[in-house]
Design a protein around this nucleic acid. Structure first.
Lengths: 354, 354
DNA sequence: CTGAAAGCGCTTACAG
DNA sequence: CTGAAAGCGCTTACAG
């Protein structure tokens, strides 16, 4: 063995032992064409025997790739981040990439410098941005100037004046329509809606879906039954108190995320209402708590891990110059019908067509 | 400017413009002693002007540091991972390090190879392990053989036969004692306990704390009031049904994590019991759901972010050869007294000394 | 206090 | 199909 004991084997060790040049070893490892099958196998055998692993820093310094994908996030629920990482790290591992994460504060005045620092030190091959960072102009600008490829996860409207960035998202409008349709199919007509934070793109999309479905069934959207929340539990509680004090109560509440739906549930129970007998409640997100409370919430599951997986996919493909698939992808979600919703008393579930 | 337009400035550009050698620039950037103040300032000025950022891959290849810290995790609640990353990425950023995360499956037969692959490609300066990976012998072995420094977060008993590894944790025994003492101070005597998964270290520690506190107050630990759970919501529900069907019901239940406590809460409410009037419930972890249900759960908050922060700290200090502080640290937790616990009817809260 | 040389372990042109 | 040379951008010894 030419390999010095104690230190990890290098490409030189492999080349010597296989009786080829380091360039050939490099070719085999990078799946470059034009290597004789016998040579290829010999090299691979030595690689396995020596347990040789190319060092990322050397590949990165010499070549045009770093094999690093960055993930920038701020705050979105822990479950969202966990899902993103689950999908992203698995895909990265399969492809020989690694995920570098950074938790940034969306309002930090020097956020652009933080991003620029990270990018120029790491030179990642691509960056994944989650809300609300994917809608932060300073972040986007820093990334654009550095020439780092990006994929946005569930962004709001894209900034005008720049070419559309690659993105992955789900169809919030359609999902909200489905939830509303479910409630209508259960016989509900007085359906209240609690909106999310005004500065988040999902809020208006989900509200739009609610309105679409109501109108499609010729049901009125009573302004008195629409409450402005901000995606927090607290505004769900407040919304419930306000909505349930109407002369004629709603029979169902569609809160546009689970945290608010949980607030409605807690408030309803404190008021002595039985859920779903007296009030049906639906949420959105399928948060961990949604299935832990009683009754478990009817909600929508976002394909978070799958979105992250595809984001990594797009970044890697783009780098290889393969334009594989669309750069703006909409992934399927899942409507989870659980026990917080039920047919309106006296109205059979099948009464209305959906 | 000697710097070619379009490409990022290198150490050579800085050296030329500052009129010094690259070695001197390197000294300034690495805070090495023995540089004249005037020279130092001149270099720093040029660095700022050129917005020069040393490339990690070059530093890593040439030197002994990679400025990368690895974080390996599997499953622990999303909230736990989020907390760990929050603390770790902030500390990393302050120190010019970056966090590479990998989500592994604890039962993967080739988990040691996965770890070895990651380590030999990245050469991280240190690795942070969370439960249950921090107790996985194959992971520990792979890391030891590669010579990668590690810090374990909240591990169970350390493997015998090897030098004790650095770790950060909280005092589960003491925290469980505090929860139990709280219940006792509220007048409860028939207190049920739901144990966690037998293969997790925290389970026995928390039970030990419960037993300690009961004994300290001369209260009997009734075997009929101890239920074996596994940290899931479902076993909380099962435990509740079993415990609440006793001839003489417990007046309080201490579930050793929040998921199980939520199961107890849901079961109790379904049985028509009012919490905390009819039954006090305490959990452990301060999960997101704990404060979202009604009534919010009395529980214990782990200093997760702070533990991660210190783990990074220890790894960086160890690399610099500074033996700063102990390598086995126990961080303070916080008892959160919320509405799921109250004084036993007829017994004033102050009746018992704690 | 400062610098010239060598080298880390790969990939990139370029030859043949 | 294969290889010898140069070079990526830093740090490490070693000198003075």
């Amino acid at each position: 063995m030419s390999q010095k004991p104690g230190s990890a084997p290098t490409i030189v060790d492999v080349a010597e032992q296989a009786g080829v040049s380091i360039k050939t070893v490099s070719r085999v490892l990078n799946h470059e064409p034009g290597v004789q099958e016998a040579t290829r196998e010999k090299v691979l055998a030595v690689v396995a025997e020596l347990k040789y692993r190319p060092k990322l820093s050397a590949r990165s310094l010499a070549g045009a790739r770093s094999f690093l994908i960055g993930l920038l996030y701020y705050d979105p629920s822990a479950a969202f981040v966990a899902g993103v990482q689950q999908g992203a790290t698995v895909r990265c591992r399969e492809a020989g990439y690694h995920l570098v994460v950074e938790s940034l504060h969306n309002d930090a005045p020097d956020i652009d410098v933080q991003v620029e620092r990270m990018v120029s030190a790491l030179r990642p091959d691509g960056m994944i941005l989650t809300p609300p960072l994917c809608d932060n102009p300073k972040v986007l600008k820093a990334l654009r100037e550095s020439g780092t490829p990006c994929v946005l996860m569930s962004p709001g409207r894209q900034p005008k004046g720049h070419p559309a960035l690659p993105l992955v998202r789900m169809d919030d409008v359609h999902a909200a329509e489905e939830v509303t349709n479910l409630l209508i199919s259960l016989g509900h007509e007085r359906i209240a809606f609690i909106k999310g934070a005004t500065d988040q793109a999902a809020s208006s999309l989900r509200y739009q879906g609610f309105v679409n479905a109501m109108k499609a069934h010729k049901l009125a959207v009573d302004p008195e039954l629409v409450h402005q929340g901000d995606f927090t539990y607290q505004t769900g509680v407040e919304g419930a108190h306000q909505l349930l004090s109407r002369r004629v109560r709603p029979t169902a509440v569609f809160a546009s995320n689970d945290d608010m739906a949980l607030g409605v549930l807690a408030a309803a129970q404190r008021l002595g209402l039985s859920v779903p007998a007296d009030l049906s409640i639906a949420g959105f997100d399928d948060s961990a708590a949604a299935s832990l409370v009683w009754p478990p919430l009817t909600t929508v599951r976002q394909p978070v891990a799958q979105m992250a997986r595809e984001a990594v996919e797009m970044l890697i493909a783009a780098q290889r110059g393969e334009a594989e698939g669309p750069t703006q992808r909409v992934l399927p979600h899942e409507l989870l019908v659980r026990n917080s919703t039920s047919a309106l008393a006296g109205k059979p579930a099948s009464k209305r067509k959906v």
